[in-house]
Amino acid sequence: MYDNYIELMIEGMTRGRELQDAFILVLREKEGKRFLPILIPHNGYDMIANALKHKDFTCSKLMNKLAGRVGMTMIGVRLMQPANGETQALLDFELVNEVVSITVPVAEAVVSAIETHSALWVQRDTFERQSRMNNPDKQSMALPLAAMSNNLLKEALKSAVEDDNFELASVLRDELNKRDMANNNE
């Protein structure tokens, strides 16, 4: 099931230097040194921090308990590609030789994985594409625009204009306009 995936480990969490509202979960490939930053909301950052520091699994405890009651065992978490400022994940459960997957926000999935000692996975091509954009030597991380919320995009746009980085500002403006058009067409 995870043949085309790369297993990840939690490396840590950080907050953006330029964008203070950017909360980032840093994952590293289990069999290597490359990393994958995942943008998470502030409350998700707090959830994961509480799980790591205080073993607080409040957001996942009931779900994992119910899954156990019906005979489902968590086997892994697959991170999905971000879209419109959100990253979702699939919780994979085994139920009588069948896999049942449930979509949840990424922070809740990570807490559930920590609680159950389950592996985190990301599609190989997604990881390869994203890891090429990161530069560990410069201690910088690149995040896909699709992972950024509208508020974060607006904050980045303001910063780009202030820095006279009009090329970046144009890209950010185009992404915001694309999302606005998509919302108006719904």
Rank of each mutant, 00 (worst) to 15 (best):
T14A: 09
D180T: 12
N151G: 15
L36Q: 07
D125V: 05
T116S: 12
E18A: 13
Q123L: 12
S159C: 08
L66P: 00
M80K: 13
P37L: 09
S118V: 04
I75M: 10
P41Y: 04
E167A: 10
G71T: 04
V26D: 07
F57N: 00
I48N: 07
L176R: 07
E175M: 08
V96C: 07
P37V: 07
Y45F: 15
K178F: 10
G76W: 05
E175P: 02
M47D: 12
N64M: 15
D137N: 15
A146W: 00
R15V: 14
M133R: 15
N165W: 00
V110Q: 04
I40C: 04
F93D: 06
L62T: 14
K55N: 10
E29S: 06
S112C: 11
M47I: 03
R124A: 11
V26H: 07
L25Q: 06
F35K: 14
N4G: 06
Q81G: 06
A142D: 15
S112D: 07
V70T: 12
I24L: 15
W121K: 02
L120W: 02
N134C: 15
I48Y: 05
L157H: 13
M133W: 09
A22Q: 10
V100C: 04
R179F: 03
L25K: 03
V110T: 07
R34S: 14
F127W: 03
L19N: 09
L172S: 04
Q130G: 00
F166A: 02
V171G: 02
P136Y: 05
R78G: 03
D46Q: 14
N84H: 11
S118L: 06
N165P: 01
V99F: 07
V100A: 06
F93Y: 15
W121T: 01
R173M: 10
M9A: 09
G68E: 06
R132P: 00
I48W: 03
A22H: 12
S112G: 10
L27G: 04
L172W: 03
K178I: 08
A119Y: 11
T73R: 15
I75S: 11
E98A: 08
K61W: 03
D164M: 08
T73C: 06
K33F: 08
G16H: 07
V77S: 01
A109P: 02
P144L: 09
M141W: 09
F35D: 04
L95M: 13
E11L: 13
I48A: 09
L152A: 12
S170C: 09
R129S: 14
M141P: 00
Q130P: 00
G76N: 05
E186A: 13
L91D: 00
I48E: 05
S60A: 15
L143H: 09
K158F: 06
H42M: 13
M1F: 14
M9Q: 12
I48R: 05
R69C: 12
I10E: 03
P105K: 04
